[in-house]
Design a protein around this nucleic acid. Sequence first.
DNA 1: CTTCCACGGGAAGTCACGGATG
DNA 2: CATCCGTGACTTCCCGTGGAAG
Length: 421
Amino acid sequence: MSGDGANSSDTGLNSNPYGSTVEIFSDESVLKEDWQPEKLPEREKELDEIRNALAPATRGVNAHNLFLYGKTGQGKTVAIDHELDLLNEYANSQDDLELSVIKTSANNQSTSYQLAAHLIKEIRDGSKKPSGIDQQSMFDLLYDELRGLNETIIIVIDEIDSIGSNDDLLYELPRARKNGHLEDQWISVIGISNDLEFRDNLSPKVKDSLYDSEIEFAPYNANQLTSILERRAERAFVDGVLDGDVIPLCSAFAAQDEGSARQAIRLLYKAGELALNNDNEVIHESHVREARDILERKRIEEGMRSLTTQDQLALLSVVALEIDEETPARTRQVYQKYKDIAAILDSNQLVERRVRDHLQSLGMQGFLIVETRNRGIQGGSHYRFEVKTDLEATLDILGEDNRIDDVVEDLTDIATAKNLV
DNA sequence: CTTCCACGGGAAGTCACGGATG
DNA sequence: CATCCGTGACTTCCCGTGGAAG
């Protein structure tokens, strides 16, 4: 709850334990993920709106329910934290405002039931998650816990989209008082979502109950990213180590992609590290480009490692077709290949319908290019799949898994023979 | 404009599993 | 212990549909 001090002095400026001869960073912590900027000039308007929505809490009624949406790295979480800190500060200075803020991430809580259990755990401060009971009992348990809190309750649910269409709790919570589950308390819910479609897929009754106001965080443009980076760079780096092109290039890369400040900062940080590791005194454009490649590869690796075996098999099937130069391939072809591969590996074979789901999900995660096609009376409509990620890197990473590495090795050999990697 | 392919995708149902409950 | 709960991963079934060919 208490605002963490931002001063860290653990960046060694003087002696270089590993013998680096150059100085790049003056305060590296500014570039870390958990660094909280104290100002958000690019989001003044959004901060204002949040303030307006929270303001009723200071007048003894419930704050408006609030919905923040926008892609990752747009400052949603930082903005809400910032405003809640201010509100908390205010509450502490007033005798008649008793505030309870519960902040949680719905990440990995894929249903209302799970989310309720998670909230209970959060309020109980770390005890284990209840389970095994029916949903309504779980909700009742949650209300019991809520009754133990202060008069004004604000529940922040980050990544709220992960509960998908199972949104009963989102309907229940805002109406807890109306429905008599809570008597003397005011409750409001702040939802944060990366998924822009989530809002449209919510059931109408939830929309009605949850949506007092919504605030969109539009992607930063390159100019905004540049100012954000400049503010950070000023504190993070030693004077004069930044080549003129570096920040604009980081901004441009990030803006082209998702407009994510997080991504831009990561790029800048990585570029700085590369310069440092190479004993370069100045960070150049080349460092940024290298940083981008490294980060991109890391992103793929992380995603791929978390794939289930069946996901890997589906991906491998498309990779194999790619090596045979038969991509883009339609579902049927991929499925044939999949059956071959599954047979070789003696793994259980799923039905085509299921493999299609796996392929779709691989598309969503950015590993495959998925294209719909319609060839009318001769062909009808169908999907076409091809590999989106770098073939060599993909084979490398998949080869690390010893359940499938035999097949991957063979494929790598064929690909090498064909000069594809 | 109509036809109609072959796939997409929704729905419903089965199964196995971890944890709770009495 | 038997039994119940929610859930994810799966299969089975079947209706709906975009758009090139005619």
